[in-house]
Write a protein that binds this DNA or RNA. Structure first.
Lengths: 373, 373
DNA sequence: TTGTAGGCGTTATCAG
DNA sequence: CTGATAACGCCTACAA
């Protein structure tokens, strides 16, 4: 591959100075039409591609926006993990191209496993992409395990603004970054005020969900499944409790089963209770992913959903519509969240001194069959 | 937002030279442990984030990979368009944050319209993302209407390798880029040999599909729907014809209805034929998107699928499983395609002089109900 | 209208 | 082990 030509090459080819070359691209009106043609012609001849990187260096902004996911799931293994494994740490295609055909469906075995895609983050990401495209901004995407600051910094240092899905121990690094460029976080405890937030009304959603269970189905025995590790989950748990309290029903002070998405032995409490025949009438899950895993376990145990136990999710992913029974859940406006994040970043680019903002978007109850409807 | 600190600031803060600062980050073993600590401490104090951009400039490589989609669909409008509109050219959220809540579900109205996501390109993109993540590479994503070379160049100039979904008139620009950096195209006529290809066995897939229609359903009257504008579609059409010919059945020499995804008045031929009661027994569509649109039209016209007409798609998107009736189609190994593209790019990074490669991946017939099964 | 020259933040070579 | 210093490719006053 020949060395990429630079302004110098083009300038020489066209018989002008590098400034003229630069001008023809940045300020076409500033060069004589004939000269401009000359330069463009030379550029075309050389397959000249101006380096956006170098330009970014020169004028202090990159023109790109970043989206980083602290992927807590990279570590999830074991077939029993509550969350399907999305990233195969092993090699994919080896150097032997002959194997390619055979393996094409290998990681894609059922080829229709919409359990792993699109997930929550994927839909938010899509909104982000759409909005970036609309505004003509390049989008830099990265992800990596929580705790590894390297990758996110790599992304952050190439963009004008950054959106993040926080991970387990990412608060510190995110806070640090937010001192250097506009940052918006999707779900995270409100920080020291150096970063913006785009969130949803988790508590309200969980309240609506619980209300439905209590009022429409007459269920009085409601428990929560999922480790309240994340702020989102805590709020959902709180919403459930609030509604139960409002109705004068028993309010659990702790989650029933603290299964986390990365758990190696998930739903142990549920399994035990099922064995003992002591399951509650309804299990409100921290997320759709929790609910989908739970559905699998209950099916395996021979527990009828929603007959014996009602199960609900939270998020509104596609898989919740394809599972059996279809999942009653709370739908987040994921695309809107992604787009709004871009909005927020662009706004803080326009006015770098503006204070960070917090947006909380509404959610919507989606009643399907897993609740008993 | 304070000016981002540079090596100079850190050097000063730590009382060393910029070289030492750079070394502590790039070649830690080269600086005395105590000095290293000094520098790291200073860097932390200043929230120093090394600029990947500047590094790229200095060492000639960016470390990122790019994925660009010539989005032919940006122009698709009108409610009748065969393909759902994904990009709203209008403003999304205005400056009035008050409206945010109200509009959260506005563009997301049904909030469960999996017709527009994920599409074919989204699943391939996901494979690309996964593989980039696995290799620790940043991913730069961009998209824009066909014909606009600016955006793709912007992406291309920031990455070490580029994958593209070709658009209508993008051959030229892609060819040009392929002279400057490794490029892999997903569906495209094989070019002058300057770029790599990752494709699927379109013809074989269409043959299997048609075989199923003919052999298992005894259908003898098969037509094709969709403008054979793209190479992929041409090959599918060819596959259908080959199988019909092999069975000694009538072989259409042209597509029945050349509706394109961006068509403003799609399926006019089908509509006319339906009105005249002269529809064929089976309609093989160029893609799932074509088939989904067709399903809508036929439902609207009161034509029973698969009773009166069998309909098939091609791709294997999620929506094909959620529609009524579920779509019989050919599933492409989309994730594998995306991952393989990264593989190809990385390989040509390792050996810049290697010749471009062409990979053709296998597809798989997915029988659902729209064919009559 | 076009050319000269300094600077953007890093890396890396070469002395010390 | 550490410090000058010259690239890297482009932008843009400032001059001519």
């Amino acid at each position: 591959m020949p060395k990429r030509p630079t302004v110098y090459d083009v300038a020489q080819e066209a018989g002008v100075s590098i400034a003229t070359v630069s001008f023809t691209f940045r300020q076409p009106g500033r060069v004589k039409a004939s000269t401009r043609e000359l330069v463009l012609e030379a550029a075309r001849r050389l397959n000249y591609v101006p380096s956006a990187n170098a330009r970014g260096l020169a004028d202090g902004r990159t023109g790109a926006l970043g989206l980083y996911s602290f992927d807590m799931f990279l570590e999830a293994t074991g077939p029993g993990a509550a969350r399907p494994v999305r990233e195969d740490p092993g090699a994919f295609f080896g150097p032997g191209a002959a194997a390619v055909g055979d393996r094409a469906f290998a990681d894609d075995s059922d080829a229709e496993d919409f359990r792993v895609f699109p997930l929550y983050v994927d839909e938010v990401q899509r909104g982000f992409e759409v909005e970036c495209a609309r505004r003509g901004r390049a989008l830099l995407i990265g992800s990596g395990p929580s705790g590894d600051g390297g990758a996110v910094i790599d992304i952050a240092s190439r963009v004008d603004g950054l959106a993040v899905f926080p991970g387990a121990r990412s608060e510190e690094i995110i806070a640090q970054l937010s001192h250097r460029l506009p940052v918006v976080a999707f779900a995270m405890p409100y920080g020291a005020g150096t970063l913006s937030h785009v969130r949803v009304d988790n508590q309200g959603g969980a309240e609506a969900l619980t209300e439905h269970l209590v009022v429409d189905h007459g269920i009085t025995d409601v428990q929560f499944v999922g480790d309240p590790e994340m702020t989102d989950y805590q709020e959902r748990f709180a919403g459930m409790r609030a509604t139960l309290a409002r109705h004068g029903l028993p309010v659990p002070d702790r989650v029933l089963d603290a299964t986390a998405l990365v758990d190696d032995a998930p739903y142990t409490v549920v399994r035990r209770l099922a064995a003992e025949g002591r399951l509650p009438r309804a299990l409100v899950c921290a997320s759709d992913q929790h609910a989908l895993g739970l559905l699998d376990v209950l099916a395996e145990l021979g527990v009828d959903v929603p007959g014996q136990v009602a199960v609900t999710g939270f998020d509104g992913v596609v898989a919740g519509r394809l599972c059996t029974p279809p999942l009653t859940t709370v739908r987040q406006p994921m695309e809107a969240m992604g787009r709004l994040a871009v909005d927020v970043l662009m706004a803080s680019l326009v006015d770098p001194d503006a204070a960070p903002v917090d947006h909380t978007l509404p959610v919507r109850l989606v009643v399907r069959r897993s609740c008993g409807c």
